[in-house]
Amino acid sequence: MAKKFYCSQCGQTFEAASMPDKCPICGADTSHLTEVKSKGINTNGNIYTICYAAVMVILVAFLLAFVSSALKSKQDANVAIDKKSQILASLNVRGLAKSEVEGKYNELIQETCVLTPDGQVLEGEDAFGVDTKEIGEKFPVYRSKTADGADALVLPLKGRGLWGGLWGYVAVTPDLQKVLGAYFDHESETAGLGALIKEAKFQEQFIGRPVLGEDGNVALTVVKKGSSTAETEVDGVTGATLTSKGVGEMVLTGIQQYVNALGGSKPSGCCQKAEGCGGCGGKEGCDKPCCQGESEQAE
């Protein structure tokens, strides 16, 4: 705390941390300087210190709480828009301006549901609200249309790369036979190598690939560039062997889990095609969960 000193030679008051050798204004020596004690409370007293700390803490807490709650809706909106643009990217809609994302998302995503590993629909769960961490216990599925109007199911995936986590969204045809689009992202892969999985160039390789192998299980995966022996094997990123391997693993096991949850290659549950929800037009007696009137669509 700065102290005030009064110099009797020049008559000025100045501030300094402690008694200086001479007056900084006129150069008079210390015999002319006296400290001016601030009138009022002794700011170094115990009671004062405690009260001061308490008041400050309360004030700051109120201020931060106010700011946080005032901005919360905007922040949540931003996070949601980010997630939506990722899902849209897997449907091959990229490069949208922030304001258009919401509209396009609502236009393309028809309905969603959350499944358990053995295919039961989890009531009351919103697919969009399922965090990436929870994938593996809960399986959110988005029934939607791609940019060109084809029907698709978007499957969120979770995996592990070289340095950190990976996640992605793969859009497949409703019968789970073909990939329509993909989006991958990472927490902390190497810039210029593993980070390239985020580029459209890598993701667009997945379009049109078959998902299932000859034995009916998921065979879609990522292999080293140049060594792919089947349509289901996508080229990895050159120089990012382990990140590519991570993506391959994620896609292979992740989609298999969805296939199992959806009951083999014919999906069941509320995301069935043909008699699909939204298509029954509110038919009487339709008892599928998504026809119960309550919208399960994400905000």
Partner: peptide, 18 residues
């Protein structure tokens, strides 16, 4: 001028953190 000397650094930190 009102900051108690003993919690000077803490007060600065709180202001900056806020």
């Amino acid at each position: 001028n009102s900051i108690p000397n003993r919690i000077r650094i803490i007060v600065q930190l709180v202001v900056v953190a806020a």
